[in-house]
Design a binder for these strands. Structure first.
Lengths: 217, 217
DNA sequence: CGACCTGTTGATTCTGCTCAATCAACGTGG
DNA sequence: CCACGTTGATTGAGCAGAATCAACAGGTCG
C-alpha cells in the first residue's frame, strides 16, 4: 500500500539526530518526493531487486527475515533521519515494513559520482550496530536484552527520560530473540523494581538509568 | 607476540575463493609484508586506534567482544582470502586474535584514492554476514545453530564433504551463543544420527547435507 | 455493540546451562 | 622412559530461565 505524496518535510522539524553524511547523500541523489507507507505496509520484500537506499523522514521501519517455518528475526528498527536498504547483492535479503505509518524518501544516485564515499560510513555504522546486536542476542539474558534495547532507544531519541515505543511487544520480542510474553513479563519486573514506569502502552519512563546500564554493559 | 617475516605468499597457493574486490584493494594499498601471528596472538584490541584493514593470507582469525563480566561473543571467523578490521569510529570495538597461527597482511591506503569504492562491497558483505548471524542467534535452537555453522564453513572451504575446524569447541560455542558442553553434545547427536562423522577432533565429514540444510533454513 | 487485536498473567514444560567427574592428548622435567 | 600437570573434549545429573499453552482483560474499529 504505497501512497505517493507531494508533502515536503519542513527541514526545521528534522529529527533530533540526523546521521552524519546523510545530507551529502541526499545532495548526491536525484530529487524525490516523500512516499507515505501506512502501518505494516511493505517498503520492499525479500527477493525483490535491490535499488535505491531509503531515508526515513518520519515514523519508524522494521527490517526482518523469516525462517522457512515462519519464525521472524527483526535485525533493525529505523527511525527519522536514518538510512536503510543496504544490500550486498542485487536482491533484497530482507523485508522492510512501515511501523504505524512512515514517510520514506528514496535515494537514487545521480550518476556514478563519489557516492561510495558517503555510503561507506553509513554502511559501517549499520555493521557496527549489527555487531553490537550480536553480543546482545548471543550472550545476554532476557532482562539484559531488554535493558540494552531501552538504552539504545533512549540514546537515539533524545527525549530524556521518556522513550517512545512505536513498535508492539511482538516486534520487540522478534528483535531481541524472545517471545512477546517474556517481553511483557520483563517490563513488569522492571516496573516492580521501579527501574521504569509505564505511563502508557507505547511509552516508557526511565526512572533509574544507572540501574539499566548496570544490567546490560 | 608479533613476528614480522619477509615470507611472501606464492599467489598460486591462494585460497580457493578470494573475495571479490580484494585484488583491487591490495593494488591500492601500500606494499606490505605478511606478519605471522602465533596461536592466540592479538592482532588488535578493543579500544586500540583503528587504522589499516587486514587480509588473511593463511590460517584463521576470530573477532570478538567481551561483556563486563567476561562473557565473550565471537562475531566472526575469518579465513584465508578474507578481509577484516572495518570500524565505524577511530577506535577498534573488537578484539582480533589469531587461531592456531595466521599470516596477516596489513592494507594501508596509498592516498585518499578511490579506496571507498573497493571497500564498500566488502563492508556490505560483512554486514550481510552479520545480519545472517543475527537470525541464527536470535531464532534458532542449538541443533539448528550448529547445522548453520557447519554449512557456512562448508561453503567457505570448498573441500567437499570434509570440514576443517581450526577453532576449538569453546570458540564455536561463543560464536553460536552456546556453551562448549552443548556444542559437544550436539555434535554427538549429529554423529549418532549419522548426519556427520568425526574423523578427528578438528575435522568433520558431512554425510547428509540435505539433513543439515533441513535443520537450519 | 461485538469482533478482533494486543497485551498481561498464570501454569506447566523443556531446552540448554551449571556444576562436576572423567578422559585423552600433549609437553615437561626428573 | 615414565610421572605429573595442563588443556581441551566428552559425558552425566540436576536446575533455571524462557518457551509454550491457556485464560482473560483492555482498546479499537467496523
Amino acid at each position: 500500500m504505497l501512497v505517493q505524496t507531494n508533502f515536503r518535510i519542513d527541514t526545521t522539524t528534522q529529527p533530533r539526530s540526523v546521521q552524519p553524511n546523510v545530507p551529502s547523500l541526499v545532495a548526491q541523489s536525484r530529487p524525490s518526493v516523500v512516499a507515505f507507507f501506512a502501518d505494516k505496509a511493505p517498503i520492499y520484500a525479500q527477493g525483490a531487486p535491490a535499488g535505491p537506499l531509503y531515508l526515513v523522514e518520519f515514523g519508524a521501519v522494521r527490517i526482518y527475515r523469516l525462517t522457512a517455518d515462519g519464525r521472524r528475526q527483526i535485525s533493525a528498527f529505523h527511525f527519522a533521519g536514518e538510512v536503510f536498504g543496504f544490500e550486498s547483492g542485487d536482491e533484497h535479503q530482507f523485508f522492510a515494513e512501515s511501523i504505524g505509518g512512515a514517510g520514506i524518501r528514496a535515494l537514487r544516485p545521480t550518476s556514478a559520482g563519489r557516492m561510495a564515499e558517503s555510503l561507506l560510513p553509513l554502511a559501517l555504522r549499520s555493521l557496527s550496530r549489527a555487531q553490537q546486536h550480536l553480543l546482545v542476542l548471543g550472550r545476554q539474558n532476557a532482562r539484559e536484552k531488554m535493558a540494552a534495547f531501552l538504552l539504545d532507544l533512549s540514546e537515539r531519541q533524545e527525549t530524556d527520560r521518556f522513550i517512545d515505543l512505536p513498535m508492539q511487544r511482538n516486534d520487540i520480542a522478534d528483535y531481541l530473540g524472545l517471545t512477546f510474553e517474556t517481553v511483557s513479563r520483563i517490563l513488569r519486573k522492571l516496573k516492580d523494581a521501579e527501574t521504569i514506569r509505564l505511563p502508557s502502552i507505547k511509552q516508557i519512563e526511565v526512572l533509574d538509568f544507572a540501574g539499566l546500564r548496570a544490567l546490560c554493559k
